[in-house]
Structure formats: structure tokens, C-alpha cells
């Protein structure tokens, strides 16, 4: 077993997990408080990446671009809430799925029209582009460490926001009984819009952080949204803690599965068979995990207490 490689892959898995958490936290927030299924959440992730990519070329610096793109993505989220999502809240989940599927097609096509089909590669400033040698043989790109750091910081910030601030109190109250919250004189409409914009900013941030690695591309939203849904299903829909644990779990399992499953399989089967089976099994692994968890706990690891 190559422990250096294992260490590097664990870090990669952690990075994927934290990015997933950024997307899934917005989904789970919006679902928890609004009871709203949003397939278009992935499109906002994509739009965040594209806005940031464009701004990187305008402002000449990736970090400045992120700072400007964040509120812009929040605005996009706010507009989406105002124009479409708000009208869907009192309909059933089937309507949410269909309506936001339509929204996803609209947003993806708009991005295609604005930014073209090819996607954009985002350059990093020189000091972020290098690698750090953490110990003998383990070279980690600085930017990946930055992603992990940002992800952990945002997770901590969200935890603080939800548990220790007035806004967080309202969010938690709204999640358990929104009629009561509005009866107590809270402007629930504004609260909803705020939560929606916050979720959009989180997803957008994830898109911005990944864009220097994979580039901003048209299909990126549709790819991550399914995994993000798997995350919130495993974690228990509406639970921030569940989303965090499930996201890191899935990030690690997916990354480690892709890199080590073939050597594991070679212990029990021929090299040839292992090379065929490993990619197939690792591609399905997170879904198998989800199936097992749901077979045991149909409402996920941390089911909502009040619904």
C-alpha cells in the first residue's frame, strides 16, 4: 500500500466532499425551510463558475473575481426566487421537480447563449498555482489546500449562522413551523428570499472554486446536482449536520474508490477482470451506499424531527 498516495487521495476526497457540501447545504437549507425541491440549484453552481470566469478576465485576478461574483450569484438566486420559485412553494413536489427542471433547461441554455458551448478555462494567480511539499513525496497543489480551507471555514460559518444568530434561529423556526413564524410577525417572504439567495451564493462559491481546476462548462450543473441530492438524501433532507457528514463521506468514498478499487479487486480476481470491474463498481459505489443507508434508515442518517 502506498501511504503517500493514500494521503493525497484522502485530501482530494476531502476537497470533493467540501465542494459537495457547499452545493448540498444550499439545497438542504431551501428544502428544510421551504419544503422546496430545486433541480435548478446545479445551474446556479454553473452560473457562479461562469460569472467568476468572465470576471477573472475583466479584473485580472481570480480572488477579486470571486469576491465580486459572490453577491452577483446571490442576486441571480434572488431573481430566480422572485420570478419562479416563489410561485411554486404551495404546489406539490412533482410540480417543483417539473418546474425547476424547466428552469434548469432555461438557465443552461441561457448560459450556452451567453458564454458559448466550449466553456472557459480560468487561470490562477502565480502564487496559487504552485505546489507544496507537505512531506517527502506528497506534493499538494496550493489551490486544493485553499479549497479545503475555504470549505471548512464556510461549514463552520454556516454552523455558527444557523445555531447562534437571530437569522439562524428564524431559519430553524421556519423549518419546523413556518405558519407559526409568520404569525409571530416575521416577514416570511423576505426570509425565504434571503435563504434562497444564501443557498445560491453557497452553490455559486462551489462553482467558482472548482472552475480553475475543471473550467466553467455548460453541463457541470447537471452533473453535480444528482450527487448533491444523494448527499442530502443520505444525510436526511433538511439537516445541515447530515449534509456535512454525508458530503465528506461521499467525497472520500468516490475518490478512494476510483483510485484504489482496482488494486483491492486484484486481491480476489484476475488483473484483467479487476480492470474491467473496478471502474464500473466505483462509478456505482455512492449509489450503492445510498441504497444501503436508505434500506436501513429510510429518512437518512439525520431525519428531520418535525415535519
Amino acid at each position: 500500500m502506498d501511504y503517500t498516495l493514500l494521503f493525497v487521495q484522502v485530501l482530494n476526497g476531502l476537497q470533493l466532499g467540501l465542494l459537495l457540501f457547499l452545493v448540498a447545504s444550499g439545497l438542504t437549507l431551501v428544502f428544510g425551510i421551504l419544503d422546496f425541491v430545486n433541480l435548478a440549484h446545479g445551474s446556479i453552481y454553473m452560473i457562479g463558475a461562469f460569472i467568476c470566469a468572465s470576471l477573472t478576465f475583466v479584473l485580472g485576478n481570480f480572488l477579486w473575481a470571486v469576491l465580486v461574483a459572490l453577491p452577483l450569484t446571490g442576486l441571480v438566486g434572488y431573481a430566480v426566487e422572485l420570478l419562479v420559485a416563489r410561485r411554486l412553494y404551495d404546489k406539490d413536489h412533482l410540480d417543483h421537480v417539473l418546474g425547476t427542471f424547466g428552469l434548469l433547461l432555461v438557465l443552461d441554455t441561457l448560459a450556452h447563449m451567453i458564454w458559448g458551448p466550449a466553456g472557459i478555462t480560468v487561470p490562477l494567480p502565480a502564487w496559487l498555482d504552485g505546489q507544496i511539499e507537505l512531506f517527502e513525496g506528497a506534493n499538494i497543489p496550493v489551490f486544493r489546500l485553499l479549497i479545503i480551507g475555504t470549505g471548512l471555514a464556510v461549514a463552520a460559518g454556516l454552523f455558527w449562522l444557523v445555531n447562534y444568530t437571530r437569522l439562524g434561529m428564524l431559519i430553524r423556526a421556519g423549518a419546523s413551523n413556518r405558519t407559526m413564524v409568520s404569525a409571530l410577525g416575521i416577514d416570511i417572504q423576505t426570509l425565504f428570499a434571503l435563504v434562497f439567495a444564501l443557498g445560491a451564493m453557497l452553490a455559486g462559491l462551489a462553482g467558482m472554486l472548482i472552475s480553475p481546476i475543471t473550467g466553467a462548462t455548460i453541463g457541470m450543473g447537471g452533473q453535480i446536482i444528482i450527487t448533491a441530492f444523494v448527499v442530502i438524501i443520505i444525510g436526511g433532507i433538511g439537516s445541515m449536520k447530515g449534509a456535512f457528514i454525508a458530503a465528506v463521506l461521499i467525497g472520500l468514498i468516490d475518490t478512494l474508490g476510483r483510485s484504489f478499487l482496482d488494486s483491492l479487486f486484484e486481491l480476489v480476481m484476475s488483473e484483467n477482470a479487476a480492470e474491467t470491474a473496478a471502474p464500473a463498481v466505483s462509478a456505482m459505489m455512492i449509489y450503492i451506499l445510498m441504497a444501503i443507508i436508505l434500506a436501513v434508515k429510510p429518512q437518512g442518517l439525520f431525519p428531520p424531527k418535525v415535519r
Binding site: 433532507i237 449509489y287 429518512q299
Partner: peptide, 17 residues
């Protein structure tokens, strides 16, 4: 074994599998 929105998403996840 699940219902509502869990069912919607788990069927989607299985097809993605």
C-alpha cells in the same frame, strides 16, 4: 420504503447509477 420527495430522488439516483 421511502416516500414523497425521497422517492423522487432515490429513483433518480438509481437511474443515474
Amino acid at each position: 420504503r421511502t416516500k414523497g420527495v425521497y422517492f423522487i430522488m432515490i429513483t433518480m439516483a438509481f437511474s443515474q447509477m
